[in-house]
Simulated assay, not measured.
Amino acid sequence: MISCKLSPILLSAFVLISACKSKEATKEETPKKPKNVILLIGDGMGVSQVSSSFYFGNETSSFERFKQIGFIKTSSQSDLITDSAAGATAFSAGIKTYNGAIGMDQDTLAVPLITDKASENKVATGVISTSSVTHATPASFFAHVKRRSMEEAIAAQLPESPIDFFAGAGKDFFFNRKDSVDLSIAFTKNGFVVDTVALNTSQSLDVNKKYGFLLAPKSMPKMSEGRGDFLSEATRLGVNYLSKNKAGFFLMVEGSQIDWGGHANDSNYIVEEVKDFSKVIGEALDYAEKEGNTLVVVTADHETGGFTLASENGDYNKIKGSFSTGGHSATLIPVFAYGPGAESFQGIYENNAIYHKIIDLTQWGK
């Protein structure tokens, strides 16, 4: 047997080089502070809804591009199974609250939102949705009400909120109100330009103004009804505008109607909405990969429908959607992350940890 011994000088050099490499590796592993955050919420989107994007359609699923994946527990303060209001407030405020609460804690006290924290740090903010912007998820990022059904009260808070850009539906809650209040005056007073006709993606948005797009009375059409690329185009327009802000931006984008397909127990509805959402994720990832300073987080508030992909009539080469409920389920929800600090989203944790992870990484809480 041959043995080999290093001389003291060579051994010292080896130890020094190893130590330097170890320090370099540690330095590389330290997450860089993200300048921008894009939070994409697929309302009602569980693992089976995500899986459907791999089996239906000809496009490669954008979910396949993620390497950092975790799971969240979604129970609210009041119920084992959450609703969208409590679920979204967990993301927007970092607290567990009762079902139906928008930006309120369990004692019905208003709590600071992530958009408030961002704005205090001169960070631009936006919300985009395929529902009304007064619906539970988008509302949780700018409003404070005791019950999610108070959509006119929610609408009245948007003009004076920290939001710089919004797009979706719900113009009836702003301009065709039961109390006859015309919120266009409040929008103008607070520097908003509001369009109720089209996104006008060709226009150059002025960084010194705020912008809103309310393109349907109460909700955007389904994909099957011809909504087209609204969500992708709105996301692109929002990112182009918000990224002009030197301090960075926070943008929440909701694929609202995945949830509605689950409530309706309509597999085709779910599939088409998830495919659309996957396309939007691709837009966000393309931007993040190009810029290198943007954290993208994709998750859901809860799963809807108890949706699963089952064999069709026992044929294992054919898949159909099946359902166990017309409501929400308690299943764990996946979290996908890309960009600076993405590794922080691995593991299994409570849904309100999403807020705290973003705040810790961006340091917007300071």
Rank of each mutant, 00 (worst) to 15 (best):
F173P: 08
F174V: 08
F175T: 11
D179E: 06
S180Y: 15
V181D: 12
V181E: 14
V181C: 05
D182V: 06
S184G: 01
I185S: 13
T188A: 15
K189M: 11
K189D: 15
N190P: 06
N190C: 09
G191W: 03
D195L: 00
D195M: 03
D195T: 06
V197E: 13
A198P: 08
A198G: 06
L199M: 01
N200T: 00
T201R: 10
S202Y: 12
S202G: 00
Q203Y: 09
S204C: 00
L205T: 11
D206A: 00
D206S: 03
V207Q: 13
V207W: 01
Y211R: 08
Y211W: 05
F213C: 03
F213P: 10
L214T: 04
L214Q: 04
L214F: 02
L214C: 03
L214H: 10
L215A: 00
L215W: 08
A216D: 14
P217Q: 08
P217W: 10
K218E: 14
S219T: 15
S219N: 13
S219E: 15
M223S: 07
E225P: 05
E225Y: 03
E225N: 11
E225S: 11
G226A: 09
G226F: 06
G226Q: 04
R227Q: 07
R227T: 07
G228S: 03
D229Q: 09
F230W: 12
F230Q: 03
S232E: 12
S232C: 06
S232Q: 06
T235H: 00
T235M: 05
L237W: 04
L237E: 10
G238D: 14
V239Q: 05
V239P: 02
V239I: 15
N240G: 02
Y241H: 05
Y241K: 02
Y241Q: 01
L242C: 01
S243I: 13
K244N: 12
K244F: 01
